[in-house]
Write a protein that binds this DNA or RNA. Structure first.
Length: 831
DNA sequence: CTTAAGACTTAGCATGCGGTAG
DNA sequence: CTACCGCATGCTAAGTCTTAAG
């Protein structure tokens, strides 16, 4: 870790005022900003602590919208009917429930620690669904929708009984007057000092969901204490003998330039970046820049070496050095590793937690991002550029203006960890919002169904977009800037992203967030099909937007009419949780714990597929599949051998069972069989040899004499025999019955067992293949209401730890122990 | 209305560790 | 016991959405 000198805590780095105007970035090209601001999170304060204004900034944030100026005019809109009026008012009366069944469902918080009944789940908690689990999610859609409609009606009908919000913002505390008061090396941000005495006695019993001040989300804290951030260690120059080579000549660089060369050299194993021409180009541009600023490169004699061609740069020496270093670290004895880790933990302990309204809370990211090369994903135009080092004077406490990172001009934030109270609160709100959508979903669907035929182009586009977002879980699709990768979401779908196949098949093919490909062939409502055809009509062409009259803000504004706070993303949460809820509800509580976990994961996977969450296929995947395939084939070969043994015992069986029964599977060719036999023999040999060696070692240890090679050879006789046996089998095409007292019955039983093994393994292989590019984590963490998982865990008696790691155990507190680790003794707030 | 800035959530990748199959 | 695999964790990029200003 860094020396203490470099670990300038936030508060010390800049308690407040020694605001250094700005730093020049050694590696900028003019259009980029130097400087980064790390803000200590949730911002709610307007005080400007320090400024770091760079006039050059701003140029990069331009967004573009290819507007298509066709003025397609449709007939005047029919005035919207009564029911189309904002629902927000009506909402107030319909929020409440009476249905006893949903009783617990609602303000879980108000019930203290009580959990919903196992049969109830947070979303769609009503009667058992009759939606069958189908292969394809789309196939269920109709039924699911019908059910949703039913649910929504029921929800609306139910008269009021309880407030559905856990914490109405009845008492609002003001805290608009914060100021920053550095104190004893700590950043202490305080608002109302008189509040200080009011803080909870029992930290770990704090139930934020019952706190009336936590409702409206404007004031998140009144007091905040933290120790700022940790800076990365300073650059450590390479040893003298490790140098970048240019045109074969080792060159000496100024440490700053060397560091940048090191960024590239250190990642030579990441071919995916290093071989990307854009990455190379951007890196090299920035690298040359820094060379220029630092006096360039020199050879051993001190002569200048002009570095101008990327291909002449050889980073391998640098790579080898860093790789060896990594290797060394990896090979450290475990005890040593532990010690190092403990030391680091101790050094950083002070930064791990902050005090938030008097309660100890985990900080999410207190380490300042080290300098490196920007790894933009997909075809990001800036990928490979140098991210400059962040200096203490660029850090802003909580608030501040005009200082951003140098690549995209963004702020970086320090926020609390996912398991902190604040994060728990917003998480909770998010899922509550999704559940609220449940009450309006049928209306929304009915409306867009109708509006699909609207006379106004805008309205049609709006309806069609909502349809797509609702049905296929598309993201909203905001506009993107020129200097970002070209990815799209619903509203920004381009002409070429959608193909239409009559009568009503739509093929989506586009790059979404993180440049992850979204490809799906789906059936749509006939009217949607017609609309998309209209939206694609000439003169629209490749590159033009399908929803050219629609923006995400217009769409979201429309959604707000139904429900306060309703936006496009809520549909993803809603549909994900709703799907999960239905799947879990139908699950049978049988089998072992691993089997139940598997069943849960299968449901999880369906949601992940819905949301198009992917991962890159692991490097070894193809190999692993190959291996599994071989093993399955091997089993089938053994099965064939068993059958032959039956014939050996009872030749008449051939007639009885039919010749086909005894034939070898076609893919088990003669050559394959020979190879496989060789493999088996080799395997056997290895095993015996290893055993022999080990036995000898043991003998030596025991002070006995080693066995001779003759002993080994004797042991290897088995293999020889086996080899002979195979040879004989190959020649005769027959297999002699094996084992003690073989009977046809015994062999039949063995075949049954083998069949089971083959079956299990085939399923496993299929599973692995189907799962190779599906990422379960994202949907589990961000989309599936955790209460569903808790209910499942209780109902099926599977420990919750099987589903949530410490990292995501939603804070130590939460409504009905759901954002809390149930029954835990609150270990997650260390003291 | 459009645009930009700002705050915060959602996202996949790298890495290392611990469990386990062989 | 070792090699391998899957997963937790750390990291930071890339979205969404709100707000404010012109």
């Amino acid at each position: 870790m860094s020396s203490s000198e470099d670990d300038v805590p936030l508060a010390r780095a800049n308690g407040r005022a020694n605001a250094t105007p700005k730093m020049k970035s050694p590696a900028t090209n003019g259009d980029l900003d130097p400087g980064v601001s790390v803000r200590f999170g949730p911002v709610q304060d307007a005080d400007v602590d320090m400024k770091d204004v760079d006039a050059a900034r701003g140029a990069s944030k331009r967004k573009s919208r290819t507007s298509i100026d066709r003025k397609k005019s449709y007939v005047e809109p029919e005035s919207s009917e009564e029911e189309d009026k904002p629902l927000s008012k009506r909402r107030r009366t319909s929020v409440k429930h009476e249905d006893p069944e949903t009783d617990e469902d609602v303000p879980l918080a108000l019930n203290g620690r009580k959990l919903p009944k196992a049969s109830e789940t947070a979303i769609g908690e009503e009667s058992d669904s009759d939606v069958p689990i189908e292969k394809k999610l789309t196939a269920q859609k109709k039924k699911i929708e019908q059910k949703a409609t039913k649910d929504a009606r029921a929800a609306r009908k139910a008269p009021a009984k309880k407030e559905s919000k856990p914490a109405a913002a009845t008492k609002k505390q003001t805290n608009g007057t914060e100021s920053v008061t550095p104190k004893k090396g700590k950043a202490k941000v305080k608002a109302e000092s008189e509040d200080a005495d009011e803080k909870e006695e029992e930290e770990d019993e704090y139930k934020w969901w019952e706190d009336p001040t936590k409702g409206d989300g404007t004031n998140k804290w009144t007091t905040l204490e933290h120790n700022g951030v940790v800076f990365p260690p300073p650059y450590e120059p390479l040893p003298k003998n490790v140098k970048l080579k240019y045109n074969g000549v080792p060159v000496t660089l100024h440490p700053e330039a060397e560091e940048v060369a090191g960024f590239f050299g250190g990642m030579l194993n990441s071919t995916h970046n290093v071989e990307n021409p854009v990455f190379q180009k951007n890196f090299f541009t920035d690298f040359k820049d820094i060379l220029k600023q630092t006096g360039g490169a020199k050879d051993a004699q001190g002569n200048k070496v002009d570095i101008k061609e990327f291909i002449k740069c050889d980073f391998k020496p640098i790579f080898e050095f860093y790789d060896a270093q990594r290797e060394e670290k990896r090979n450290l004895p475990p005890a040593e590793k532990k010690k190092i880790k403990a030391e680091k933990d101790e050094q950083e302990a002070a930064y791990q937690f902050c005090t938030w309204d008097g309660r100890k809370q985990k900080v999410g990211n207190f380490r300042v991002e080290p300098p490196s090369l920007f790894r933009g994903r997909g075809e990001h135009p800036k990928t490979g550029r140098v991210k400059t080092r962040v200096l203490p004077e660029q850090i802003t406490i909580n608030i501040g203006k005009e200082a951003t990172e140098n690549i995209n001009g963004n702020y970086k934030y320090v926020m609390l960890a996912a398991n902190s109270d604040v994060k728990g609160q917003s998480d909770y709100k998010k899922f509550e919002k999704a559940r609220e959508l449940k009450k309006y979903i049928d209306k929304i669907r009915k409306d867009y169904q109708k509006a699909l035929k609207h006379d106004m182009m805008v309205e049609r586009q709006k309806a069609t977009a909502v349809y797509l977002i609702d049905q296929f879980a598309l993201r909203a699709g905001n506009e993107k800037g020129e200097d970002e990768a070209e990815t799209v979401g619903c509203c920004s779908l381009k002409y070429e992203n959608i193909s239409l196949k009559p009568p009503n098949t739509v093929i989506f093919d586009f790059l979404g967030k993180d440049s992850i490909r979204f490809y799906d062939e789906v059936q749509v409502d006939p009217q949607v099909f017609k609309n998309l055809k209209i939206f694609k009509k000439a003169p629209k062409k490749n590159g033009d937007e399908i929803f050219d009259r629609l923006t995400t803000s217009a769409l979201n504004k429309h959604l707000q009419n139904y429900m306060q706070g309703l936006t496009a993303k809520v549909f993803r949460t809603y549909n994900a949780s709703f799907t999960m809820s239905n799947l879990l509800k139908e699950m049978k509580a049988t089998g072992t714990i691993p089997e139940k976990v598997k069943a849960y994961n299968d449901a999880n996977r369906r949601v992940a597929i819905l949301c198009n969450h992917k991962r890159t296929v692991t490097a070894g995947h193809a190999n692993q599949m190959e291996k599994m395939g071989e093993r399955i084939k091997g089993l089938r070969y053994q099965k064939w051998r068993l059958k032959q043994q039956m014939l050996d015992l009872e030749p008449t069986l051939k007639k009885k069972k039919g010749a086909a029964f005894f034939e070898r599977d076609e893919d088990l060719t003669v050559e394959w069989v020979k190879e496989h036999q060789a493999f088996l023999l080799e395997e056997q040999t290895q095993k015996i040899q290893k055993k022999f060696e080990k036995d000898n070692e043991k003998r030596v240890a025991d002070g006995e004499k080693e066995m001779k090679t003759s002993e080994l050879n004797e042991r290897l006789e088995v293999v020889k025999d086996l080899e002979k046996k195979y040879a004989k089998e190959n020649k005769s095409g027959k297999v002699e019955a094996e084992g003690r007292g073989p009977t046809v019955e015994k062999i039949e039983a063995a075949i049954v067992k083998l069949d089971q093994r083959i079956e299990t393994m085939s399923v496993q292989a299929q599973d692995k293949e189907d799962n190779k590019e599906v990422a379960l984590g994202t949907s589990k963490i961000n989309y599936i209401d955790p209460r569903l998982t808790v209910v499942f865990s209780k109902k099926f008696n599977v420990p919750i730890e099987k589903f949530f790691s410490r990292r995501y155990a939603r804070s130590s507190s939460g409504p009905s122990s759901l954002w809390k680790r149930t029954g835990s003794s609150n270990h997650s707030i260390p003291s």
